[in-house]
Amino acid sequence: MKVEDLFSVRGRIALVTGGSRGIGEMIARAYVENGARVYISARKAEACDALAKELSQFGECISIPADISTMDGVAHLAAELAKREKRLDILVNNAGASWGASFAEFPESGWDKVMDLNVKSVFFLTQRLLPLLEAAGSPDFYARVINIGSIEGIRTTHLEAYSYAASKAGVNHLTRLMAKFLAPKHIAVNGIAPGYFPSKMTAGISDEDNRETLAGTPLKRMGQPDDMAGIALYLASRASAFVCGAVIPVDGGLATTA
């Protein structure tokens, strides 16, 4: 099989949550530029609409703003997609949030906000979209769910982001559990555990902490859009046809150091 066929997503239908910026934007852009019809969702409608308009210069990109930290938002997004499509080939559960505070001062709100968006929405949005995913999957080509975890759910970080680290460990393991039980429905579930990429989340980290992180990264740099595009295309294409339940670090080796 030719490389361009092996890694192709042309003609596939994808939904990327948290798709208006950061890692979500990197993934959405990769899919659009390689021939998929891509829906992006984010809480802020203006940003979501603006990126969809920009990416539509290169292919098909449609904005469906939604706040999936709530069950109403999850239901809204699933219903809006079902109005437009009869199948969903690729679901990327990327929307996420973080919260930093010392152990003694960490608030309940910082726990619940992060858990609701980072873990709960992954499970229930996939559940609501199950009919569309099942419609897309077949024995020859499984539908794909790609959950965005984090290496902070694998390693012990130097940052006091308790709910974030716990939530991403939850996503990493939820990915394995979903993979086991959705595979019989012709849906392959895998995860990406990113390291440090340019995003609003990493922009909030102090310069000192960023320097410490980069110093501990064997490849000595942050991730770039092409780094995320490559793994996202791989997990959505025939190239990963025999990959199921994997959580793949994309972190320059940082998870090996702590």
Rank of each mutant, 00 (worst) to 15 (best):
M1K: 07
K2L: 13
E4R: 14
E4V: 12
L6I: 10
V9M: 05
V9C: 08
V9A: 07
R10C: 12
G11K: 09
A14S: 11
T17E: 08
G19D: 06
E25L: 13
A28T: 01
Y31L: 12
E33H: 08
G35N: 11
V38P: 01
I40K: 05
A45C: 09
E46R: 13
A50S: 14
A52C: 05
A52K: 01
K53I: 05
K53V: 10
L55T: 01
L55W: 01
S56G: 07
Q57F: 04
G59R: 07
G59Q: 08
E60Y: 03
S63Y: 05
I64P: 02
S69Q: 01
M71Y: 00
M71W: 00
G73H: 03
V74E: 01
H76R: 10
A79C: 07
A79W: 00
E80Q: 14
E80I: 02
R84N: 13
L88A: 07
L88H: 04
N94E: 09
N94R: 09
A101R: 14
S109M: 04
S109R: 13
G110L: 06
D112L: 10
L117K: 01
V119S: 03
K120V: 01
V122P: 03
L125M: 07
T126D: 04
P131G: 13
P131C: 13
A135K: 10
S138F: 04
D140P: 00
D140W: 04
I146W: 04
G149R: 10
G149Q: 11
I151A: 12
E152T: 14
G153M: 12
I154L: 15
T157S: 15
T157G: 11
Y164V: 11
A166N: 08
A169V: 11
V171G: 10
H173F: 14
L174T: 08
T175S: 12
R176F: 01
R176L: 11
L177M: 10
M178E: 13
A183P: 00
G191F: 09
G191S: 15
F197K: 08
K200S: 12
T202H: 06
D209R: 12
N210I: 13
R211P: 01
A215T: 14
P218Q: 10
R221Y: 06
G223L: 09
P225D: 10
A229R: 11
A232R: 04
A232V: 06
L233C: 07
L233H: 06
L235W: 05
S240Q: 05
G245Q: 03
V247S: 11
V247N: 10
L254G: 01
T256A: 15
A258P: 05
A258S: 15
A258L: 15
